[in-house]
Amino acid sequence: MSRESDVEAQQSHGSSACSQPHGSVTQSQGSSSQSQGISSSSTSTMPNSSQSSHSSSGTLSSLETVSTQELYSIPEDQEPEDQEPEEPTPAPWARLWALQDGFANLECVNDNYWFGRDKSCEYCFDEPLLKRTDKYRTYSKKHFRIFREVGPKNSYIAYIEDHSGNGTFVNTELVGKGKRRPLNNNSEIALSLSRNKVFVFFDLTVDDQSVYPKALRDEYIMSKTLGSGACGEVKLAFERKTCKKVAIKIISKRKFAIGSAREADPALNVETEIEILKKLNHPCIIKIKNFFDAEDYYIVLELMEGGELFDKVVGNKRLKEATCKLYFYQMLLAVQYLHENGIIHRDLKPENVLLSSQEEDCLIKITDFGHSKILGETSLMRTLCGTPTYLAPEVLVSVGTAGYNRAVDCWSLGVILFICLSGYPPFSEHRTQVSLKDQITSGKYNFIPEVWAEVSEKALDLVKKLLVVDPKARFTTEEALRHPWLQDEDMKRKFQDLLSEENESTALPQVL
C-alpha cells in the first residue's frame, strides 16, 4: 500500500538533515546492470571481512566470479597478432551492500547512478522477487541517484539526491524531493519508509565518522582530508542543518603536550582565546566558526575552494607581477588587521594563504593565525623552527619566545613576496656552502639577476625593505602599504570589485 501522500506532506515541511535544493538533472540513458558494476546475484546478508577486503582492492568479489566451465583457453599460436591488451577495470570509489532480497550489490565505478523502476536507470528495480513485494509499487520510476562531484583539492564528494514520490531516507532522515545531501561511510539508505532499509553505503575513500566526538558529529558530517601540516590535519565537512561546506582543523593534544602547556602557563585558556579569535572579522582572514574541545581540538573554519598559494608557486613557478601585487596587498591588509588586534601570526607561508577560486584574479585569505593562542608560545615555536624557511632572523637566534615582536610577520611576508615574484625561495638548504640558518640570520638571500630583470624596481625595493635583518629597521605593514609599488588604483579597484562580488555589503578597509 502506498504512503505517498503521508511522505509528500513530510517532504513539504523539509528536513533537518544536511540537504539543499538542487537544479534539474539530465537523465542518464539506460545500460545493462552488469556493465555498471552490479553483481549478477542479489543478497540479503552483509559481507564478511574477506569479501570486503577483496573488493576494496579493486579485484572481483566472490559475488562477481564466473564459473571456469564457461571459459576456455586460447593457445598462444592462435592469439590474433593485432589484439590489444584489455584496459584494467577501474577501482570502485564506493560500494552499496544490499540489505534485502531482490536488490543486488553495487560497485560504484562510474560517477553517476540512477536507481528506480524505469529501465533507463543504471540500477533498475526489475528483479522478479522484488516485483512480488508489497513495497515495489511505492518505488518511483526514478527514485534517487548517487553521484560524486569534484571538491576541494581535486578530491571527490559523494551525494545522494531524492527524486521520489514516497521519499528517500539516509539514516532515517528524509532527504526531500529535489534535494541532495552528502553521503558518508556506513550510511543506511531506506526507500519509501524510513524503516525500509535497502542499502548500506560504503565510501571507500573516507574514514568512519565514529572516531570523532559526538558533539562534533551532531553538527557536522566529516568527509575527506584536505591537507595536513606540522600543526594538524584539515578535513572537509558539512553543516548538517545547511549542507554548507566547512573546513575542520584537528590539532592533536598529545603531539603538542597541550596539557603540560596549560600547567606551565595557567593563564592559557584555550576556550577564552578561541572566543576572541571567533570575533575577528576581516575579508582577508579565514573566519573561525566553531570550536570543540575533546581528546583533540577541532576548529571549524570557513572553507576556501581555490587551494593554497603554495600550489601556484611550487615547482619554480612565478606569478605575474600584477597578480603578485593583488595578492600581496590583501596579505598586508590581513596581517595589519591581526597586528591591530594584538595577534602575531608567526607562521606566514604560502600554505597559509588560501585562494577563493581558481581564477588568477581572486580574493585571498590568511589562515592559521591563532596557533600560539591554542598551542602555547613554546610549543608552537619548537614546531616552526623545524622548517625555518620563512622564519625571521630574530626568531632563530632567540631562546624560547623572548626578543621578537610583530616584525617577524613582515619578514615572512618579504619571503613570500620574493617567491611569488621570482619563482624560487630566497633562502634554501640546497645552497650547501652556507647553512639555512646562517643565510637567514645574515640576510644573504639568493639573488639571480636574469630572473629579477623581469621584475620592476619598485617591487624589488619593497622586497629589500622587508628582508632587513634588524627588526627595528624592517618595514611595518603600514609602511609597506604606503610603498610606491602598491599605489596602484587599478589594483585596488579590482580588489574592491572582487569584494563586491563576494558580498555587496563588504567595504574596502581604510588604508593610510
Results as ranks from 00 to 15, higher is better:
S2W: 10
R3V: 10
R3C: 13
S5Q: 09
S5T: 10
D6L: 05
D6M: 08
D6H: 14
V7T: 05
A9G: 11
A9S: 03
Q11E: 12
Q11H: 04
S12Y: 12
G14V: 01
G14T: 07
S15I: 09
S15A: 09
S16K: 03
S16G: 11
C18M: 09
C18G: 10
Q20D: 01
P21H: 05
P21T: 09
H22L: 08
G23R: 04
V25H: 11
V25L: 10
V25F: 10
T26V: 07
T26C: 14
Q27N: 13
Q29H: 07
Q29P: 06
Q29G: 11
S33R: 06
S33L: 09
Q34L: 08
S35H: 03
S35G: 09
S35P: 09
Q36I: 11
Q36S: 08
G37M: 09
I38S: 08
S39M: 02
S39C: 15
S40F: 04
S40E: 06
S41K: 15
S41F: 11
S42I: 05
S42Y: 09
S44C: 13
T45N: 11
T45V: 09
T45L: 11
M46F: 13
N48S: 11
S49W: 13
S49D: 10
S50K: 08
Q51P: 09
Q51L: 04
Q51G: 05
S52M: 10
S52I: 03
S52Q: 13
S52W: 03
H54N: 06
H54T: 04
H54W: 08
S55F: 08
S56C: 06
S56G: 05
S57E: 13
G58C: 04
E64C: 02
V66L: 04
V66C: 08
S67G: 05
T68L: 02
T68I: 11
E70D: 09
L71Q: 03
L71M: 10
L71T: 15
L71I: 15
Y72R: 12
Y72T: 10
S73C: 10
S73I: 03
I74T: 14
I74G: 14
P75M: 07
P75W: 09
P75H: 15
P75T: 13
P75R: 09
E76W: 15
D77Q: 05
D77R: 04
D77Y: 11
E79K: 05
E79T: 14
E79P: 11
P80R: 10
P80G: 13
E81F: 10
E81K: 13
D82H: 14
D82V: 12
Q83M: 05
Q83S: 04
Q83N: 04
E87Q: 12
T89C: 15
T89P: 11
T89G: 06
P90A: 10
A91P: 11
A91S: 07
A91I: 03
P92K: 14
P92F: 14
P92H: 15
W93F: 12
W93V: 01
A94C: 07
R95W: 04
L96H: 01
L96S: 03
W97E: 02
L99P: 06
Q100W: 15
Q100V: 14
Q100D: 04
D101T: 10
G102M: 15
G102R: 13
A104T: 10
A104I: 13
A104F: 09
N105H: 12
N105G: 11
L106F: 10
L106K: 11
E107I: 15
E107W: 14
V109Q: 14
V109T: 15
N110W: 07
N110H: 12
N110R: 06
D111V: 14
N112D: 09
F115I: 13
G116N: 00
G116S: 02
G116Y: 00
D118C: 13
D118E: 08
D118L: 15
K119E: 07
K119G: 08
S120W: 14
C121G: 08
E122M: 15
E122K: 15
Y123P: 09
Y123M: 15
F125V: 13
D126F: 13
E127R: 10
E127M: 15
E127V: 11
P128S: 05
P128L: 09
L129S: 09
L130H: 05
K131V: 08
K131M: 07
K131N: 10
R132Q: 14
R132S: 10
T133I: 05
D134A: 09
D134V: 12
D134N: 11
Y136N: 15
Y136I: 04
R137Q: 01
Y139C: 03
Y139R: 03
Y139L: 04
S140A: 03
K142E: 12
K142G: 10
K142I: 12
H143V: 02
H143A: 02
H143P: 03
H143L: 02
R145F: 13
I146R: 01
E149C: 03
V150E: 15
V150M: 04
G151A: 02
K153Y: 01
K153R: 02
N154T: 02
N154G: 05
S155M: 15
Y156S: 06
Y156A: 06
I157C: 06
I157F: 06
I157T: 04
Y159F: 08
Y159S: 07
I160Q: 01
I160S: 01
E161G: 12
D162Y: 08
D162Q: 05
D162S: 14
D162P: 09
D162T: 14
H163K: 08
S164V: 07
S164C: 03
N166I: 06
N166L: 03
N166V: 03
G167R: 04
T168F: 00
T168W: 01
F169E: 02
F169G: 04
V170C: 06
V170S: 14
V170R: 02
V170W: 09
N171Y: 06
N171R: 10
T172D: 03
E173H: 13
L174P: 06
V175K: 00
V175T: 00
V175W: 01
K177C: 13
K177A: 05
K177P: 06
G178A: 14
K179A: 06
R180Q: 06
R181I: 05
R181T: 03
R181F: 15
P182H: 10
P182V: 01
P182A: 07
L183T: 01
L183E: 13
N186R: 01
S187E: 02
E188F: 10
E188S: 07
I189M: 05
A190T: 09
S192V: 07
L193T: 03
L193V: 03
S194L: 15
R195F: 00
K197S: 03
F199P: 13
V200C: 03
F201Y: 14
F201P: 01
F201S: 08
F201D: 06
D203P: 00
D203V: 07
L204S: 13
L204Y: 06
T205F: 01
T205I: 10
T205N: 04
D207E: 10
D208C: 01
Q209P: 15
S210F: 05
S210Y: 15
Y212L: 00
P213N: 06
K214N: 07
K214G: 05
L216W: 11
R217C: 14
R217I: 06
D218M: 03
D218F: 07
D218A: 12
E219W: 01
E219T: 04
E219Q: 08
Y220P: 00
I221L: 01
I221Q: 01
M222A: 00
M222C: 06
K224T: 01
K224D: 01
K224C: 00
T225S: 09
L226D: 01
L226H: 03
L226N: 01
L226P: 00
G227A: 15
G227N: 13
S228N: 14
S228R: 04
G229W: 05
G229F: 15
A230S: 04
C231T: 02
G232T: 02
G232V: 01
E233A: 13
E233V: 08
V234G: 05
K235Q: 10
A237W: 09
A237Y: 02
A237G: 11
F238V: 07
F238K: 01
F238I: 02
F238R: 01
E239K: 09
K241E: 09
T242F: 03
T242I: 05
C243K: 02
C243T: 02
K245W: 15
V246C: 03
V246K: 15
A247C: 15
A247T: 00
I248Q: 11
K249F: 02
K249L: 01
I250G: 11
S252F: 08
R254L: 01
R254P: 01
K255D: 00
K255F: 03
F256M: 02
F256I: 11
A257K: 00
I258D: 02
G259R: 10
A261M: 00
A261E: 06
E263Q: 04
D265W: 00
A267G: 06
A267T: 14
A267S: 14
A267M: 10
L268V: 04
L268T: 03
V270M: 12
E271N: 15
E271S: 12
T272A: 06
T272K: 12
T272V: 03
T272P: 15
